[in-house]
């Protein structure tokens, strides 16, 4: 790389950054016939939804699938329900929203009348498994060791996860407890604000067991500071490191639990536009850029569209509602 080209790039980047600032600061008016689109993200930059949403946008822009450009907006608040409510009030055919299991949970907690399936479900993009984690010095060597102990003393063993009630890291241990015959209300669950604080709680032995997606913990797992007792999916994860961990089913627990993310459009858009948007996402799914993102982020390629996705959303929201009701939340 010659120094001239780096400088040019640098200057170009600078200009872009400035333009970006003004665009986000002032808002951009958009001509109606334009093909430009807006992707809403229901949490902060750097979070899970943000990574998935931006990867999808990047792949669509790289392949020029929509014929226009994308503007990405992070709408932070109330576990994603602020962004979701905004989508439900919109009739803009050019706006889509990244959602996931966490948004189902918080729309229950916030008592929203609308469910995710009431928008226009476009596609599920990915799936992510949860793992059961213990620190290296833990006496639990296998998932059976833990479950046996847990069944005896569900109310004295402190377990934790990186999400508040209704989020995936909370729903998973509750459903696991129920599957092995523990009353979910008895579980002593400690909510941490994300993967970072959860890691330090585990390494500092503040809690016995942690529940979370494994991506954030790769370093600690590789180094042997944290041990994975089981993963929650139908099949084992891929990769040298992660494929060693047994699924719950292999270990004799009848539970499959997955975290997932997908894309919604506003309710009431035309059938034609819905099909068009789904076609964009299908094309995006086939692109090499997307496949690369799946690999880099260790996301499981679980893609379903339209009615199939809608049925899935219905099933998910019933399941979340049941769990939360059972807990009295």
């Amino acid at each position: 790389m010659s120094s001239r080209s780096t400088t040019t790039r640098c200057v170009a980047g600078l200009v872009l950054a400035m333009v970006g600032m003004f665009a986000t600061g002032c808002g951009v008016t958009r001509g109606e016939p334009s093909k430009d689109m807006t992707m809403l993200i229901p949490n902060a930059p750097g979070g899970g939804y943000d990574q998935t949403g931006r990867a999808a946008v990047a792949a669509m822009e790289a392949q020029d699938i929509t014929g226009g450009t994308f503007e990405v907006h992070n709408i932070i608040g109330a576990g994603g329900t602020v962004a979701f409510s905004q989508l439900m009030r919109s009739d803009d055919e050019h706006t889509i929203l990244t959602v996931g299991l966490g948004v189902v949970g918080s729309s229950y907690s916030f008592g929203l009348d609308e469910k995710l399936q009431d928008a226009t479900p476009l596609a599920q993009l990915i799936e992510d498994q949860e793992g059961v984690l213990v620190p290296a010095s833990s006496p639990y060597k296998t998932i059976d060791d833990f479950l046996e102990d847990w069944k005896k003393n569900p109310d004295t063993i402190a377990v934790g996860g990186g999400s508040s009630p209704g989020g995936p890291d909370h729903l998973f241990p509750m459903q696991l407890a129920k599957a092995v015959g523990i009353e979910p209300r008895e579980v002593r669950y400690v909510a941490y604000d994300g993967g970072g604080p959860l890691t330090s709680a585990l390494l500092g032995k503040k809690i016995k067991v942690g529940f979370s997606g494994l991506g954030e913990f790769e370093g600690q797992i590789k180094e042997g500071e944290l041990r994975v007792l089981a993963v929650s999916g139908e099949k084992r994860l891929e990769g040298d490191l992660f494929s060693k961990f047994p699924t719950l089913k292999e270990s004799g627990v009848d539970l499959v639990f997955t975290n997932w993310r997908g894309v919604l459009a506003p309710p009431g858009i035309s059938e034609k536009r819905r099909d068009e948007l789904i076609a964009y996402l299908e094309e995006m799914h086939a692109s090499p850029e997307w496949q690369e993102s799946l690999k880099n982020n260790k996301w499981i390629d679980e893609f379903k569209t339209g009615d199939e996705f809608e049925a899935f959303l219905e099933e998910q929201s019933t399941r979340v509602d049941d769990t939360m009701k059972e807990l009295g939340l």
Binding site: A78, G79, S109, S164, L329
Partner: peptide, 20 residues
């Protein structure tokens, strides 16, 4: 904001914007 331990909104007056 949202109570981290129960997931319930506090002093939010029904506004999701006050959920954080």
């Amino acid at each position: 904001g949202m109570d981290l331990n129960t997931g319930q909104p506090r002093l939010a007056f029904g506004r999701p914007e006050l959920g954080n």
